[in-house]
Nucleic acid binder design. Structure first.
Length: 422
DNA sequence: TCTGGGGTCCTAGGACCC
DNA sequence: TCTGGGGTCCTAGGACCC
């Protein structure tokens, strides 16, 4: 097999730059939810030494000194740009696996291109001219090697942006110049373990005894070893498998202490989970609720806890999931703590069509479903949360901070770019 | 005095990804 | 004052069953 990995460089930061020419050559950072920490930065911001994951408040001096442009994350915009990129990729290749919002694997088998490197160049140019976004492309026989080639293209072939390692000699060269911590699937813990045992480059790792890898790093890393040897061990999934869990959680804008206050975010997260379930035509068999204090505040008493509640019949009804989530909250809530975050997860998801009715089920599910559909349709028309459930108050206390939001250029007619023509 | 073995299910925690 | 959110997979250990 031959696989290409295409990803957008500094995706969120590049999106912001794309829509605002004044940002050209300026340092740009994009912040996480709640404007908490840096999750994307332009090359200029990287050069200033701003690291991924850095808390926003620690870079305020740098921001002032170098006029760094700061943005709250605008997922509506990034999502729509992502769709455009995927559409372009599908114009080249039939089998595209969308791996994340900013990257995709392409199956290059059976293409009539003689030179896959040139195909990469062509793809890159088309994405640039159609979306204005810069991408890097790595081409190799397995996903792990394509990842590695991609990283090489980004770091060492910046002007070209494409690297192909399709022959064994190119692969060997690539392995030699890649440190183990730059291998897809090797994180900080495994990096430490490998370094301590004398494995420093990917070439060292490839020659590690397989049994040692399996015992010390589980079968996951053993599969990785195969991938680097050119043997496919990570499945090709151009149709995404159904999700097993859905999680909705947020940190609060301010800390909450009372049970009454906590009910609001928990109910809202429960409602979001239910909506996501309905969107993909599935139901959950368990509801999991958690609340936690802020672990960074050493001076505060810490408490984090969770509970799983099994449901007698799998459901995607907002009212039911709110009911069980609140029941869970009542079980785990303890007064006297400053809570910083709450979340709801729906677990063991099954397809809506495959639900067995329980003998003990007394709920009128047909009625529930009709109500849910009416609410979903209304919200689709008027915008999310036009219709809410009683417990989801409009009190903003727990809501996000988003001080630096850019317009929804591509998805909201009131916010599209205006060009003055006179 | 001798105190099984095999299987499943569940949970918590750890590792990783973007 | 201010430290994201959403996932997956694997393993170990406990509970429980026969």
């Amino acid at each position: 097999m031959m696989i290409a990995l295409v990803d957008v460089n500094n995706f969120y930061a590049s999106c912001e730059k794309m829509f605002n020419p004044a940002l050209k050559n300026k340092p740009v950072v994009v912040l996480s939810n709640n404007d908490g920490c840096v999750i994307a930065r332009s090359d200029e911001a990287r050069t200033l030494g701003i690291k991924m994951g850095t808390p926003a408040f620690t870079i305020s001096q740098l921001v002032d000194d170098h006029n760094v442009q700061v943005f709250s994350s605008n997922y509506t915009l990034y999502g729509s740009m992502s769709n455009r990129v995927i559409t372009i990729l599908k114009s080249f290749v039939e089998s595209v696996e969308t791996y994340s919002i900013d990257e995709a694997f392409l199956n290059l088998d059976g293409l009539k291109y003689k030179d896959l490197f040139l195909l990469g160049i062509e793809i890159r140019e088309k994405i640039m001219s159609h979306t204005g976004l810069p991408v890097s492309i790595g081409i190799a026989p397995t996903k792990a090697l394509a990842k590695m080639a991609n990283r090489f293209a980004k770091k060492n072939r910046k002007e070209i942006g494409v690297h192909a390692a399709t022959e064994q000699q190119n692969i060997d060269a690539l392995l030699k110049v890649t440190d183990v911590n730059d291998i897809w699937g090797i994180g900080p813990q495994y990096q430490k373990l490998l370094h301590n045992n004398g494995f420093n480059t990917a070439a060292d790792f490839v020659n590690a005894p397989e049994e040692w890898v399996r015992v010390n790093m589980t079968v996951v890393a053993q599969r990785l070893l195969h991938e680097l040897k050119g043997i496919q061990a990570v499945k090709w999934e151009d149709v995404p498998p159904p999700r097993k869990n859905i999680c909705t959680s947020r940190s609060f804008g301010t800390q909450l202490t009372s049970y009454t206050e906590l009910k609001q975010p928990v109910a809202a997260h429960a409602a979001t989970c239910a909506r996501k379930l309905r969107q993909e035509g599935s139901c959950a068999t368990k509801v999991y609720v958690f609340i936690e204090t802020n672990p960074f505040r050493a001076e505060d008493k810490q408490y984090h806890t969770a509970v799983t509640i099994p449901l007698t019949v799998p459901t995607n009804s907002t009212m039911e999931i709110i009911k069980f989530a609140l029941r869970g909250l009542a079980m785990i809530y303890k007064p006297g703590y400053k809570y910083q975050k709450a979340g709801v997860m729906v677990l063991d998801i099954v397809s809506q069509t495959a639900i067995q009715l329980s003998l003990f089920d007394t709920r009128d599910r047909g009625k529930d479903q009709r109500l849910m559909k009416a609410i979903d349709d209304t919200n689709k028309y008027f915008g999310d949360n036009a219709v809410r459930y009683a417990v989801q108050s409009s009190d903003q206390k727990w809501h996000l901070r988003r001080m630096h939001l850019s317009p929804r250029y591509t998805t909201n007619i009131d916010e599209v770019m205006k060009v003055k023509a006179n």
